[in-house]
Amino acid sequence: MGSLTGKTAIVTGSSRGIGADTAQLLAAEGANVVINYRSKAPRANKVVKAIEEAGGRAIAVQGDLTSAEDREALVAAAIEAFGTLDVLVLNASGGMETDRGADYALTLNRDAQVGMLEAAAPHLPRGGRVVFVTSHQAHFIDTVPTLDAYEPVARSKRAGELALREQIPALAELGITFVVVSGDMIEGTITATLLDRVEPGAIEARRAEAGKLYSVAEFAAEVAAMVTADVETGHTELVGGGKGFVA
Rank of each mutant, 00 (worst) to 15 (best):
L4K: 12
L4G: 13
V11H: 02
V11L: 00
T12H: 08
G13W: 01
I18V: 11
A20P: 03
A27K: 10
V34T: 09
Y37P: 08
S39R: 15
A41Y: 05
A44C: 05
A44M: 03
V47E: 02
V48A: 05
K49M: 13
A50T: 14
G56Y: 07
G56K: 02
G56M: 04
V61I: 09
D64S: 10
S67C: 07
E69Q: 14
A73C: 02
L74H: 06
A76N: 15
I79P: 06
F82K: 10
T84F: 10
T84N: 15
L108T: 04
M116P: 02
L117H: 07
A120M: 11
A120C: 14
P125C: 05
G128S: 14
R129L: 07
V133Q: 02
Q137E: 15
A138C: 09
P145Y: 09
T146L: 02
T146A: 12
P152A: 11
S156I: 10
L162W: 05
L171W: 02
A172Y: 14
I176V: 13
T177L: 10
T177Q: 13
F178P: 11
S182L: 10
I186T: 15
A192H: 02
L194M: 15
A202E: 05
R206A: 05
R207S: 03
A208R: 11
E209L: 15
A210R: 15
K212D: 03
L213V: 09
V216R: 06
V216S: 12
A217I: 01
A221S: 12
V223A: 07
A224I: 04
A225S: 07
D230K: 07
H235D: 08
T236P: 04
V239S: 00
G240A: 06
F245D: 08
A247C: 00
